[in-house]
Protein backbone atom coordinates (compact mmCIF):
# COMPACT_ATOMS: atom_id res chain seq x y z
CA UNK A 1 0.00 0.00 0.00
CA UNK A 2 1.30 3.42 -0.95
CA UNK A 3 1.45 6.22 1.57
CA UNK A 4 -1.55 7.87 0.00
CA UNK A 5 -3.22 10.62 1.99
CA UNK A 6 -6.83 9.92 2.93
CA UNK A 7 -9.44 12.24 1.40
CA UNK A 8 -11.41 12.08 4.59
CA UNK A 9 -10.18 11.35 8.06
CA UNK A 10 -12.76 11.56 10.82
CA UNK A 11 -11.16 11.32 14.23
CA UNK A 12 -13.08 10.61 17.42
CA UNK A 13 -15.94 12.83 16.27
CA UNK A 14 -18.54 13.79 18.84
CA UNK A 15 -21.45 16.07 17.92
CA UNK A 16 -24.59 17.27 19.56
CA UNK A 17 -27.88 18.73 18.42
CA UNK A 18 -29.64 20.97 20.90
CA UNK A 19 -27.61 19.57 23.78
CA UNK A 20 -28.27 15.99 22.85
CA UNK A 21 -25.14 14.10 22.00
CA UNK A 22 -25.72 12.07 18.86
CA UNK A 23 -22.28 11.28 17.50
CA UNK A 24 -20.20 9.54 20.10
CA UNK A 25 -16.74 9.04 18.74
CA UNK A 26 -16.80 8.32 15.03
CA UNK A 27 -13.57 7.21 13.37
CA UNK A 28 -13.41 6.81 9.63
CA UNK A 29 -10.80 7.04 6.89
CA UNK A 30 -11.57 7.17 3.21
CA UNK A 31 -8.90 7.07 0.49
CA UNK A 32 -9.12 8.16 -3.14
CA UNK A 33 -10.89 5.70 -5.41
CA UNK A 34 -12.80 4.07 -2.57
CA UNK A 35 -16.52 3.54 -2.14
CA UNK A 36 -17.70 3.22 1.44
CA UNK A 37 -21.14 2.45 2.77
CA UNK A 38 -22.41 3.26 6.22
CA UNK A 39 -25.39 1.17 7.19
CA UNK A 40 -27.55 1.41 10.23
CA UNK A 41 -31.01 1.57 11.61
CA UNK A 42 -33.11 4.71 11.55
CA UNK A 43 -32.12 6.88 14.46
CA UNK A 44 -28.63 5.46 14.74
CA UNK A 45 -27.14 8.87 13.89
CA UNK A 46 -26.22 8.22 10.25
CA UNK A 47 -27.84 11.38 8.92
CA UNK A 48 -26.32 13.38 11.76
CA UNK A 49 -22.94 12.21 10.55
CA UNK A 50 -23.66 13.45 7.02
CA UNK A 51 -24.93 16.84 8.29
CA UNK A 52 -21.97 17.20 10.63
CA UNK A 53 -19.53 16.41 7.83
CA UNK A 54 -21.14 19.13 5.70
CA UNK A 55 -21.23 21.63 8.56
CA UNK A 56 -24.89 22.17 9.36
CA UNK A 57 -24.97 24.99 11.94
CA UNK A 58 -27.29 23.08 14.25
CA UNK A 59 -24.87 20.17 14.58
CA UNK A 60 -22.16 21.19 17.00
CA UNK A 61 -18.89 19.29 17.18
CA UNK A 62 -17.92 18.87 20.82
CA UNK A 63 -14.86 16.68 20.42
CA UNK A 64 -12.64 15.28 17.71
CA UNK A 65 -12.07 16.60 14.22
CA UNK A 66 -12.68 16.20 10.54
CA UNK A 67 -9.71 16.30 8.19
CA UNK A 68 -10.52 16.69 4.53
CA UNK A 69 -7.62 16.37 2.08
CA UNK A 70 -5.42 16.86 5.11
CA UNK A 71 -7.11 20.17 6.05
CA UNK A 72 -9.00 20.52 9.31
CA UNK A 73 -12.48 21.56 8.18
CA UNK A 74 -14.18 21.11 11.56
CA UNK A 75 -14.74 24.86 11.95
CA UNK A 76 -15.47 25.65 8.31
CA UNK A 77 -18.83 26.91 7.06
CA UNK A 78 -20.74 24.65 4.65
CA UNK A 79 -19.84 26.76 1.62
CA UNK A 80 -16.16 26.65 2.49
CA UNK A 81 -16.37 22.86 2.76
CA UNK A 82 -18.15 22.73 -0.60
CA UNK A 83 -15.41 24.79 -2.22
CA UNK A 84 -12.81 22.49 -0.73
CA UNK A 85 -14.39 19.60 -2.62
CA UNK A 86 -16.93 18.05 -0.29
CA UNK A 87 -20.52 17.51 -1.37
CA UNK A 88 -23.60 16.06 0.21
CA UNK A 89 -26.64 14.68 -1.60
CA UNK A 90 -29.55 15.28 0.75
CA UNK A 91 -32.09 12.74 1.87
CA UNK A 92 -34.77 15.42 1.83
CA UNK A 93 -33.68 18.28 -0.45
CA UNK A 94 -35.66 21.42 0.39
CA UNK A 95 -37.75 23.42 -2.05
CA UNK A 96 -36.72 26.98 -2.86
CA UNK A 97 -39.63 28.66 -4.62
CA UNK A 98 -38.85 31.25 -7.26
CA UNK A 99 -35.27 30.08 -7.87
CA UNK A 100 -34.85 28.17 -11.10
CA UNK A 101 -32.76 25.04 -11.28
CA UNK A 102 -30.63 26.47 -14.08
CA UNK A 103 -29.80 29.68 -12.18
CA UNK A 104 -28.94 27.85 -9.04
CA UNK A 105 -26.86 25.13 -10.63
CA UNK A 106 -24.82 27.67 -12.56
CA UNK A 107 -24.22 29.82 -9.48
CA UNK A 108 -23.24 26.75 -7.54
CA UNK A 109 -20.83 25.44 -10.19
CA UNK A 110 -19.19 28.86 -10.49
CA UNK A 111 -18.83 29.13 -6.73
CA UNK A 112 -17.31 25.69 -6.29
CA UNK A 113 -14.97 25.93 -9.26
CA UNK A 114 -13.99 29.44 -8.21
CA UNK A 115 -14.46 30.91 -11.68
CA UNK A 116 -17.22 31.79 -14.09
CA UNK A 117 -17.61 28.91 -16.47
CA UNK A 118 -18.45 30.28 -19.92
CA UNK A 119 -22.15 29.86 -20.53
CA UNK A 120 -21.71 27.79 -23.69
CA UNK A 121 -19.32 25.40 -22.03
CA UNK A 122 -21.61 25.12 -19.02
CA UNK A 123 -24.66 24.43 -21.17
CA UNK A 124 -22.91 21.66 -23.05
CA UNK A 125 -21.79 20.02 -19.83
CA UNK A 126 -25.21 20.38 -18.28
CA UNK A 127 -26.99 18.90 -21.29
CA UNK A 128 -24.67 15.93 -21.32
CA UNK A 129 -25.23 15.15 -17.64
CA UNK A 130 -28.97 15.66 -17.95
CA UNK A 131 -29.08 13.21 -20.78
CA UNK A 132 -27.23 10.62 -18.73
CA UNK A 133 -29.68 11.00 -15.87
CA UNK A 134 -32.72 11.07 -18.11
CA UNK A 135 -33.65 14.56 -16.98
CA UNK A 136 -35.93 16.54 -19.30
CA UNK A 137 -35.09 20.05 -20.48
CA UNK A 138 -38.09 21.63 -18.80
CA UNK A 139 -36.47 20.68 -15.49
CA UNK A 140 -34.12 23.67 -15.80
CA UNK A 141 -36.89 26.23 -15.75
CA UNK A 142 -38.58 24.77 -12.70
CA UNK A 143 -38.01 26.03 -9.18
CA UNK A 144 -35.56 24.05 -7.05
CA UNK A 145 -37.30 20.94 -5.71
CA UNK A 146 -40.60 22.79 -5.78
CA UNK A 147 -43.32 20.26 -6.49
CA UNK A 148 -40.72 17.68 -7.46
CA UNK A 149 -41.46 13.97 -7.06
CA UNK A 150 -39.10 11.95 -4.85
CA UNK A 151 -37.34 10.59 -7.92
CA UNK A 152 -36.94 14.05 -9.47
CA UNK A 153 -35.38 15.41 -6.29
CA UNK A 154 -32.81 12.62 -6.19
CA UNK A 155 -31.98 13.05 -9.85
CA UNK A 156 -31.40 16.75 -9.27
CA UNK A 157 -29.08 15.92 -6.38
CA UNK A 158 -27.05 13.54 -8.52
CA UNK A 159 -27.06 15.99 -11.42
CA UNK A 160 -25.52 18.61 -9.16
CA UNK A 161 -22.85 16.25 -7.87
CA UNK A 162 -21.99 15.29 -11.45
CA UNK A 163 -21.39 18.97 -12.24
CA UNK A 164 -19.62 19.84 -9.00
CA UNK A 165 -17.24 16.86 -9.30
CA UNK A 166 -16.49 16.69 -5.57
CA UNK A 167 -13.46 14.87 -4.21
CA UNK A 168 -15.83 13.19 -1.77
CA UNK A 169 -19.53 12.75 -2.38
CA UNK A 170 -21.60 11.86 0.64
CA UNK A 171 -24.98 10.44 -0.31
CA UNK A 172 -27.56 10.38 2.43
CA UNK A 173 -30.30 7.77 1.86
CA UNK A 174 -30.26 8.53 -1.83
CA UNK A 175 -32.12 5.28 -2.49
CA UNK A 176 -35.10 6.11 -0.33
CA UNK A 177 -38.32 6.75 -2.18
CA UNK A 178 -37.05 5.55 -5.55
CA UNK A 179 -38.74 2.98 -7.74
CA UNK A 180 -36.54 0.37 -9.33
CA UNK A 181 -36.01 2.22 -12.62
CA UNK A 182 -35.11 5.46 -10.90
CA UNK A 183 -32.83 3.55 -8.55
CA UNK A 184 -30.95 2.09 -11.52
CA UNK A 185 -30.51 5.47 -13.20
CA UNK A 186 -29.47 7.19 -10.00
CA UNK A 187 -27.05 4.37 -9.12
CA UNK A 188 -25.50 4.69 -12.54
CA UNK A 189 -25.11 8.38 -11.85
CA UNK A 190 -23.37 7.61 -8.58
CA UNK A 191 -21.03 5.12 -10.26
CA UNK A 192 -20.13 7.79 -12.79
CA UNK A 193 -18.96 10.05 -9.97
CA UNK A 194 -16.36 7.51 -8.99
CA UNK A 195 -12.81 7.66 -10.29
CA UNK A 196 -9.34 6.96 -8.90
CA UNK A 197 -9.07 10.51 -7.55
CA UNK A 198 -12.42 10.73 -5.82
CA UNK A 199 -14.36 8.80 -3.24
CA UNK A 200 -17.94 8.06 -2.33
CA UNK A 201 -19.62 7.60 1.02
CA UNK A 202 -23.08 6.05 0.82
CA UNK A 203 -25.29 6.28 3.84
CA UNK A 204 -28.16 3.87 3.70
CA UNK A 205 -30.69 1.93 5.64
CA UNK A 206 -31.20 -0.77 3.06
CA UNK A 207 -28.90 -3.05 1.21
CA UNK A 208 -30.90 -2.53 -2.00
CA UNK A 209 -28.78 0.24 -3.53
CA UNK A 210 -25.61 -1.72 -2.83
CA UNK A 211 -26.64 -4.13 -5.57
CA UNK A 212 -25.99 -1.31 -8.01
CA UNK A 213 -23.25 0.66 -6.31
CA UNK A 214 -20.76 -1.79 -4.87
CA UNK A 215 -18.76 -0.57 -1.90
CA UNK A 216 -15.35 -1.99 -0.98
CA UNK A 217 -15.95 -1.05 2.64
CA UNK A 218 -19.07 -1.37 4.74
CA UNK A 219 -19.46 0.10 8.21
CA UNK A 220 -22.25 -0.60 10.64
CA UNK A 221 -23.44 2.47 12.50
CA UNK A 222 -25.06 2.15 15.86
CA UNK A 223 -25.71 4.56 18.69
CA UNK A 224 -23.59 7.33 17.22
CA UNK A 225 -20.52 5.41 16.18
CA UNK A 226 -19.16 2.80 13.83
CA UNK A 227 -19.39 -0.53 15.60
CA UNK A 228 -18.26 -2.87 12.90
CA UNK A 229 -16.41 -2.53 9.61
CA UNK A 230 -15.83 -5.01 6.85
CA UNK A 231 -15.68 -5.57 3.11
CA UNK A 232 -18.50 -5.48 0.59
CA UNK A 233 -19.81 -8.80 1.82
CA UNK A 234 -20.76 -7.34 5.19
CA UNK A 235 -23.79 -5.63 3.66
CA UNK A 236 -25.09 -8.94 2.39
CA UNK A 237 -24.56 -10.52 5.74
CA UNK A 238 -26.48 -7.65 7.35
CA UNK A 239 -29.28 -8.09 4.85
CA UNK A 240 -29.45 -11.77 5.70
CA UNK A 241 -29.03 -11.60 9.45
CA UNK A 242 -30.35 -8.13 10.38
CA UNK A 243 -28.88 -5.42 12.55
CA UNK A 244 -29.69 -7.37 15.73
CA UNK A 245 -26.97 -9.77 14.87
CA UNK A 246 -24.42 -6.98 15.14
CA UNK A 247 -25.91 -5.76 18.39
CA UNK A 248 -25.74 -9.20 19.95
CA UNK A 249 -22.24 -9.75 18.74
CA UNK A 250 -21.22 -6.47 20.34
CA UNK A 251 -22.65 -7.18 23.77
CA UNK A 252 -21.18 -10.55 24.69
CA UNK A 253 -21.00 -9.79 28.36
CA UNK A 254 -24.62 -8.78 28.53
CA UNK A 255 -23.89 -5.11 28.79
CA UNK A 256 -26.47 -3.30 26.72
Amino acid sequence: MTAKQPILSVQNLHAKVEDKEILKGVNLEIFPGEVHAIMGRNGSGKSTLSYTLMGHPRYVVTEGKILFKGIDITEMTPDERARTGLALAFQYPVAIPGVSVSNFVRASVNAVRGKDVPIKEFRAELKEQMKKLGVANEFLGRYINDGFSGGEKKRLEILQLALLKPALAVLDETDSGLDIDALKTVSEGINNLSNPETAILLITHYQRILNYVEPQFVHVFQDGRIVKSGGGDLSKELEARGYDWVSQELTPSGVS
Partner: peptide, 25 residues
Protein backbone atom coordinates in the same frame (compact mmCIF):
# COMPACT_ATOMS: atom_id res chain seq x y z
CA UNK B 1 -32.85 26.43 2.73
CA UNK B 2 -29.70 28.33 3.63
CA UNK B 3 -27.84 25.16 4.50
CA UNK B 4 -28.87 23.53 1.25
CA UNK B 5 -27.64 26.42 -0.87
CA UNK B 6 -24.47 26.88 1.17
CA UNK B 7 -23.65 23.20 0.94
CA UNK B 8 -23.46 23.81 -2.83
CA UNK B 9 -20.83 26.51 -2.45
CA UNK B 10 -22.84 29.74 -2.07
CA UNK B 11 -21.84 32.04 0.77
CA UNK B 12 -24.46 32.93 3.35
CA UNK B 13 -25.05 36.32 1.71
CA UNK B 14 -25.32 34.79 -1.73
CA UNK B 15 -27.66 32.11 -0.47
CA UNK B 16 -29.86 34.65 1.32
CA UNK B 17 -29.98 36.88 -1.76
CA UNK B 18 -30.97 33.89 -3.85
CA UNK B 19 -33.81 32.97 -1.50
CA UNK B 20 -34.99 36.58 -1.51
CA UNK B 21 -34.82 36.85 -5.27
CA UNK B 22 -36.91 33.71 -5.38
CA UNK B 23 -39.37 35.21 -2.94
CA UNK B 24 -39.69 38.31 -5.12
CA UNK B 25 -39.80 36.31 -8.34
Amino acid sequence: QLFYLMSRGLTQDEATAMIINGFFE
